[in-house]
Amino acid sequence: MKSRWASAIVNGLLIAATSITLFPLLWMLSVSFMQPGAASTYPPPLLPAHATLANYHELFERAGMGRYLVNSLLIASAITLGSLLFNLGAGYAFAKLRFKGRERLFQTLLGALVIPGQVAMIPLFLIMKELGLVNTYGGVIVPALASVFGIFLVRQYARSIPNELLEAARIDGASEARIFATIVLPLLKPIVVTLAIFTFLASWNDFMWPLIVLSDQAWQTAPVALAGLSREHVQDNELMMAGSVVTTLPVLILFLALQRHYIQGLILGSVKG
């Protein structure tokens, strides 16, 4: 009897908590289908009285959201592919290849993790300006092509690769590049998926740096454009909800499809901090 009560309390609290986390997201979806102005009534309507795609129409036809989503997609994909390549190479080298000063160099990089990214942003803006990368995709992509966190994650994982495997390949005369491509990469596959989804979500959701380096509307990512829209259309709740849906739904779906890998990366990354 006592445990039935306890079970009801535990599950009841979980249902209450999930309602709070999910309600804003579900309501966003519902309001995005309401007629313009329909959501500005009291009491707030839960479901659209007459469902319409008018807000999405307005969003893509007039506000040019399609362009911003393409920008986001291209930038996040390029960062994901490029940084996978760079971080995998570096993480593997730190884990498995012997060279002088390896540990010291790695510790230095880890030390850099305490510096907030915003400290670098102002000089970075000036560097990007010199390189002609302000208001280009490159302005967002290039600085994100490697990350200490990504290198750390790969190194942790790559340390479990047996040295005998690599030595045997070397004795057979395989080049280091070949060893990496044919032996190491297949073994790193799980961490590749984890790192890919982590990087993609982080780049898609990133806000402050793209806001700084992409002031020209044509190049803006979806979050930056949405922030701009929300400042102009303070009263157009239905339109803004549609904008939020198209900005956040892609990453939510990607997360749902690959959440096992994402959660694993989160826990792996926090083991040593």
């Binding site: 966003m28 979050p223 949405l226 929300s230 909800m241 904008g243 900005t247 990453v251």
Partner: peptide
């Protein structure tokens, strides 16, 4: 996306 949910 923080911007999107802030709008919500």
């Amino acid at each position: 996306t923080v911007v999107a949910v802030a709008v919500i």
